[in-house]
């Protein structure tokens, strides 16, 4: 086969494959996905009673009020949890900036949650996630925040703790991944339980 023939084959095949793999295949998957798994296919969105989108079950969002559980520190976008700018801090293990910021976060976490100076803080509470959109915290982190949340909402601490337990998901099939607590779902459930929004001063 001569070179001109090969060039022609290359160009025509690329065109065919672009239509087949670049248009037909993804659109076929989109069609099937929208029919069989519309919730997931559209981003696992959560809507409020007014029908407006509150967020996605898979995407973390920020919470700062004492009556809500707080997510992990986020390096996505300028102020965190920017779901159009995912990413981690990329701070290396010997970078002074990392050590300093972890130290500040640990101090702030103890203050916020009324822990004694020097009390151990769960590592996920003071480190930024890879995506900056981590929807989860560890159960260790959630239980340490429970007294603060209970106090801010005037709820019994035991009720808040049992809610954390209810929202603790083990590894998939017992072996894939880790135990997690989805912060948005937990906080929405808190609001439902206490029949009000726990934002602001709580």
């Amino acid at each position: 086969m001569n070179i001109r023939g090969q060039i022609r084959s290359a160009l025509v095949l690329l065109a065919i494959m672009t239509v087949l793999l670049g248009i037909a295949y993804p659109l076929a998957i989109t069609g099937l996905a929208q029919v069989f798994f519309p919730g997931q296919a559209n981003g696992s969105l959560i809507t409020g009673s007014d029908g407006k989108v509150i967020g996605s079950a898979l995407i973390g969002q920020n919470f700062t009020g004492p009556g809500y559980f707080h997510p992990r520190p986020s390096a996505a976008g300028a102020s965190g949890y920017d779901a159009t700018a995912s990413g981690g801090s990329n701070l290396g293990p010997t970078n002074k900036k990392l050590i300093d910021i972890v130290n500040q976060r640990a101090i702030a976490y103890r203050q916020e949650n009324g822990l004694a100076a020097g009390q151990l803080v769960p590592v996920d509470a003071v480190t930024a996630s890879a995506s900056g959109l981590d929807p989860d915290i560890t159960p260790a982190n959630a239980y340490l925040q429970a007294p603060r949340v209970a106090k801010a909402r005037g709820m019994a601490e035991a009720d808040v703790r049992s809610l954390v337990q209810k929202h603790t998901e083990g590894p998939v099939l017992g072996i894939f991944g880790e135990s997690t607590v989805n912060v948005l779902e937990l906080n929405l459930d808190l609001d439902r339980l206490s029949g009000r929004s726990g934002g602001g001063g709580g």
Binding site: L45, V53, G55, I59, A83, T84, G199
Partner: peptide, 12 residues
């Protein structure tokens, strides 16, 4: 999205 704490979040 209008977040629980009434912030705005654009989700790609």
């Amino acid at each position: 999205a209008t977040t629980v704490e009434k912030g705005s979040q654009t989700i790609a």
